[in-house]
Amino acid sequence: MRVNFVLSEVATGLRRNLTMTVAMILTTAISLGLMGTGLLIAGMISDMKEIYYDKVQVSIFLADDVTEEQRAGVEDQLAQLQSEGEVQSYLYESKEDAYARFQQQFSQQPELVQNTPPDALPESFRVELVNPERYEVIAAQFPDGTNGVDQVRDEGDFLDRLFSLLNGARNATIAVAVVQALAALLLISNTIQLAAFNRRNETNIMRLVGASRWYTQLPFILEAALAGLIGALLAIGGLVLTKLLFVDKALAGPIKAGIIPPVDWSAIATISPIIAAAGVGLAAIAAYVTLRLYVRL
């Protein structure tokens, strides 16, 4: 295979339909960028799940007028449940602890912190269950408003709603990415048809003198693959900029507070090859299929 020949064909092809090439690269970039965003959100969701679900599943809030014995009674019951294999672990949080955590979580909203008296937050036991589904069984052991227990709350319930929201955001991003990918594929197909039409004299002669199909098709496929690669690089650049300019700046507070996990460079480094491979692979496949279906070579 004459590398020079193939490369010069690729360069000529891309130059000849510059506007189509640019459109093809941009749609590919947008599609891949959204796909990358979707993957990053997915990663973030699983990080958050680890942070939240691991921390707490059930909170047992104690009443303001709880007595020493009642508090010890709840703790005994929890120890009992732990030995029975229902409770993984539990943690006592005093009013002061709760306030400190509140201060940290809402450090971005100082007014809220200032307007909350330190003793407004109830003391509680934070309980991690062996099986989060067994919440009802645990709740039944600590009826609300008796033995110093104010109320039992399944934090998982709130988290489920939060995560269904985040999952929705991820799915929407990926859905838009798929629609964009479809547009990108159609554009690639169109560009390749145009390129093949522009070079029909060459390819006709190649066909007649017995050039192999592979030799005839390769320049077109490489042309699409190259556009896909450039699109992927732009998409990766977009993700880097999004991290630097949006995630690291606008979301700095919640990240520092541990509410949202940070987007690590390693996460971007992990998905970059996936984006690049998807860009190059899909473009090349689209080109190949186009050549098979529409172009006589």
């Binding site: 060459e202 006709n204 002669i205 003198v209 017995g210 050039a211 030799y215």
Partner: peptide, 28 residues
């Protein structure tokens, strides 16, 4: 097999020599 046509079918942007060489280049 070789083919010749009424309309010659040469590549306009290549020289005589390159047109002939093209047939050999593309079959390696």
């Amino acid at each position: 097999m070789g083919c010749v046509f009424q309309d010659f079918r040469l590549l306009r942007n290549r020289t005589v020599e390159q047109n002939v060489a093209f047939a050999l280049e593309v079959i390696n």
